[in-house]
Design a protein around this nucleic acid. Sequence first.
DNA 1: ATGGTGGAGCTTCCA
Length: 262
Amino acid sequence: MTFSLATWNINSVRLRSGLVERLMTEDAPDVLCLQECKSPVELIPMEAFHALGYHHMIARGQKGYNGVAILSKQPIEEVCSFDFAGLGHARHIAGRLENGVTVHNFYVPAGGDIPDREKNEKFGQKLDYLTEMRDWWHANAPEKAIMVGDLNIAPREDDVWSHKQLLKIVSHTPIEVEHLAQAQDAGNWVDITRQDIPEGQIYSWWSYRAKDWSGADKGRRLDHIWATKDIANAGHSSRIRRDVRGWEQPSDHAPVFASFDL
DNA sequence: ATGGTGGAGCTTCCA
């Protein structure tokens, strides 16, 4: 059986519920992981999603900030919700599908503007979040698992529009990249997007502040789909729907897709 | 040279 999955930082699920419905109609991924829902769980507009076949949801929410949800056509059983770095934020939810695959949905802290934990508490929290994630995977080796989300780090040189110009910009600094790599290694995670698309610049986020986001194309690949090594070879058909960034009143992130034969 | 835009909602915080 093949199932498809997408991850999308929606930047307010209530404001953009129509965009979610459009994606559900056009692409119909079996599992849709959302971040930055910016809504209490009980105010997520489930009825519209239900009508499109998404009968199941697990989520963590808070008013105004953060928030993660997994919407699924198949039953999904909640497994856990982490609060790495003890921030008290709604940044993770995990569930298990009926095929035994566990799906982790993360919204890693953005980290503020200054890449120095002495001058910027948020940057320290981001690094601490990734360190605790690494330690968790080290102590609890994931198996038959998929990990997605807005990880707020573009690790490779070709995950950003200019490696040199972004070396001191939060999301692409060497220390962040190293922290992410350690979390990835600790869990035996394989980057499925790059397994499928090993060459070339690919992005999933473009700033709202650009005059012409598509023309300037100063993007970063902040949104990721990983799988544990035991199921990584089942992954295929990775893609990023860049055109979604150009929809009316869009999120600043585009959805990332992959499929798995499991 | 240090803005620029957008969402939530607590006129300011967060991205």
